[in-house]
């Protein structure tokens, strides 16, 4: 089985190494940020980066892995954001503390994800009968419907919930660097674990050749809806974090341009590469901030980066390459092994 050169690291050790590294990253950087290592402004940028990573990585499931082109990702984000916002207001998360507070935050995130996932199923079943540009248009329509509904409805059955065009305000600000990072890690982990299983293989098979997948016994409709729902779930989680970050929500935030912004991150990073999505989410969020000094030109630079990448690397920065810590360790290991043998 060992076709790769040199040693392969056994499974349990791989998991151990990865767990330790992730734990170090989470605790180390959270302690650093919370300890005042960076300014409040940088912390805020980091939180936005985290939210964008979740959005890009989740959209990548539908575009990169499933191979469809949905344009309504901001719609799912809006559903998650409003669900999270209303829930947090309702349970008065701002006044809770300790374990109760943590529980509320976790419940809000989960609930936002689930409600968005339900929307994913409801939209996915009819939409995924179409493909290509038709799917793009129907999902675009869905995103717009969400936005318009949120703008025009301010009360449901007499309860003031979404406050329509004036926006949902005074949402408890639950989002911190720590919980954004945990969500990012969990999102990437869950998507990775799904993709490296029979379910993930089925999703990839649909992207590669739908007819062949179907005649290999893959339930194509089921897996399309599953991938779409998974994508919607994490968009909902990101939405909830966004609500807890801003503290107020405007329906106009979740327009068509937001969907495109997320799609650009995925395409720039390379469709089908999680690492690519993460890197381009970081780049495209940080770039406008870094370029703040050149106020007038920053959007020009942003666009220029996109144009240049698409000209010189049309498959995106990473293509379909995915990151594997073990692979790198194995290579380093193999290198040392060889140099040792040469000496001896």
């Amino acid at each position: 089985m060992n076709q790769t050169k040199g040693k392969t690291i056994p499974m349990p050790v791989r998991y151990l190494i990865n767990t330790v590294l992730i734990a170090l990253l989470v605790f180390g950087s959270t302690a650093y940020v919370n300890g005042g290592g960076v300014s409040g402004y940088v912390t805020k940028v980091l939180m936005v980066i985290g939210i964008n990573i979740i959005l890009a990585v989740s959209l990548n499931v539908a575009t990169g892995y499933l191979g469809q082109l949905p344009l309504g990702h901001a719609g799912f984000m809006a559903v998650g954001a409003y669900t999270g916002g209303i829930f947090l207001k309702a349970v008065n998360a701002a006044e809770a503390s300790g374990a109760q507070y943590l529980l509320m935050v976790a419940a809000a995130l989960l609930l936002s994800g689930l409600v968005a996932a339900v929307f994913g199923i409801v939209i996915g079943i009819p939409a995924l009968r179409l493909r290509g540009d038709y799917l793009a248009i129907i999902t675009l329509g869905f995103g717009e419907i969400i936005r318009v509904v949120l703008t025009n409805i301010d009360e449901v059955l007499g309860f003031k919930l979404t406050y329509g065009a004036s926006g949902l305000k005074r949402i408890p600000k639950i989002t911190s660097y720590g919980n954004v990072l945990v969500c990012v890690v969990l999102t990437c982990l869950v998507i990775h674990l799904v993709m490296k299983s029979r379910h993930g293989r089925a999703i990839l098979a649909i992207r590669e050749n739908e007819i062949a997948a179907e005649s290999c016994g893959v339930r194509t409709t089921y897996y399309k809806v599953m991938a779409f729902t998974l994508s919607a779930f994490f968009a909902g989680v990101a939405g909830c974090l966004y609500a807890g970050y801003l503290g107020s929500l405007q329906p106009t935030t979740f327009g068509f341009m937001k969907s495109i912004e997320i799609l650009v991150m995925v395409v720039l990073g390379g469709m089908g590469s999680m690492l690519g999505s993460i890197l381009s989410a970081i780049t495209l969020t940080a770039l406008p901030e870094v370029l703040r000094a050149f106020e007038d030109y920053r959007m020009v630079a942003y666009s220029l980066v996109l144009v240049l990448v698409m000209i010189f690397k049309p498959t995106g920065l990473m293509g379909q390459y995915d990151f594997s810590m073990s692979r790198i360790l194995e290579r380093v290991w193999g290198f040392f092994d060889r140099s040792k043998r040469k000496e001896g």
Binding site: R198, R201, A205, A212, G217, V218, Q320
Partner: peptide, 22 residues
């Protein structure tokens, strides 16, 4: 009609989709 971007082994594993239950 193969799954061209996927490794040979995964192509075969996708064929076994129906036999895996988890």
């Amino acid at each position: 009609r193969l799954f061209k971007a996927l490794p040979v082994l995964d192509n075969v594993l996708i064929g076994m989709q129906g036999q895996m239950q988890y």
